[in-house]
């Protein structure tokens, strides 16, 4: 039993390491891969080429035990004496604490503090993602795959089968779409040297900026900055919402490594059904 668990844990560790290497990483917790010897790809017109798959696809090679049974138990830390101690409790509570450990917070005007607190405390019932709403920009984060043409960038996201088409031909915002109520906004991209700067407006106010109840208005503007060094992509978003924020909020940069598997694909996402909501009975988040 013990030996099987050890084997399983060892294999899991390898898969975890491989998956994390390929998937999202907060720049504050992961340094970019050593790409010093990898030239940054460029298109025929000399622009940085962001094309590529920027997420992993999972996988691994764990084996069943000699009886064909599979036992995989998610790890959690032990409990302190006197602490409530049940499976997953610490795992989930650690997650909740971790979500609040980021010192980079949006600074709301004082008259909005009570609303943020209410949304946070009641997040199990009010978080739009719990209700299967799209995350929206910027909560959706960096794209999983990018297709670049001379006039457009196409961002593909695994979650919710989401795509964004971002013109980079120098046009301004569309006067109709920029007044729409969109989850991903009306986006246009412009080059600042080797950085692609994406400006998005025209948002619904039904999404959050992040898990702790950070709301925004439908007059929000999001500016994303995209850079590539070798095979490392860096994505960073700044939220401008002067109706509720005291100052623009620049989120932590996210770095992703290029998926080197030429056969890696984004597969379609499946529908979301909010079946948990009817059974959540406490406010504890995690």
């Amino acid at each position: 039993m013990m030996l099987r668990r050890i084997r399983t844990s060892t294999s899991i560790a390898a898969v975890v390491a491989a998956t994390l290497w390929l998937t999202t990483a907060d720049a504050t917790t992961q340094q970019p891969a050593s790409n010093g010897n990898v030239a940054t790809p460029r298109t025929a017109d000399g622009k940085v080429d962001f094309s590529g798959m920027w997420v992993g696809t999972g996988g691994g090679d764990l084996k069943p035990d000699e009886s064909g049974n599979i036992t995989v138990l998610s790890r959690g830390r032990p409990c302190h004496p006197g602490q409530e101690c049940k499976p997953a409790i610490n795992f989930e509570r650690d997650s909740g604490v971790r979500q609040r450990m980021n010192p980079n917070l949006p600074r709301y005007k004082p008259e909005h503090w009570a609303r943020v607190e209410d949304l946070d405390v009641n997040g199990n019932f009010k978080d739009p993602e719990i209700k299967c709403y799209p995350a929206g920009l910027p909560r959706m984060g960096a794209p999983g795959k990018i297709v670049q043409t001379p006039t457009e960038l196409i961002f593909l996201y695994a979650s919710h089968n989401t795509f964004r088409v971002i013109p980079i031909d120098g046009r301004d915002h569309d006067p109709i779409r920029s007044q729409d109520l969109l989850y991903y906004g009306d986006s246009i991209g412009k080059w600042e040297g080797d950085t692609l700067v994406i400006d998005s407006v025209g948002f619904t106010d039904e999404t959050w900026l992040a898990w702790p109840g950070y709301f925004h208005t439908n007059n929000m503007r999001v500016v994303e900055r995209l850079t590539r060094q070798g095979n490392t992509l860096t994505w960073q978003a700044t939220v401008h919402d002067p109706e509720v924020l005291m100052e623009p909020w620049t989120m932590n940069p996210v770095r992703r490594n290029l998926n080197p598997n030429p056969k890696a694909l984004l597969v379609e996402d499946l529908p979301c059904e909010s079946r948990d909501s009817a059974h959540i009975v406490t406010r504890e988040r995690g």
Partner: peptide, 22 residues
């Protein structure tokens, strides 16, 4: 199972509720 664990170990990017709330 490994993938489940790997994904659950990655930095949280989506909404989540504590399992003990349910």
């Amino acid at each position: 199972a490994a993938v489940v664990l790997a994904l659950s170990t990655a930095p949280p990017a989506v909404a989540h509720h504590a399992i003990q709330a349910e």
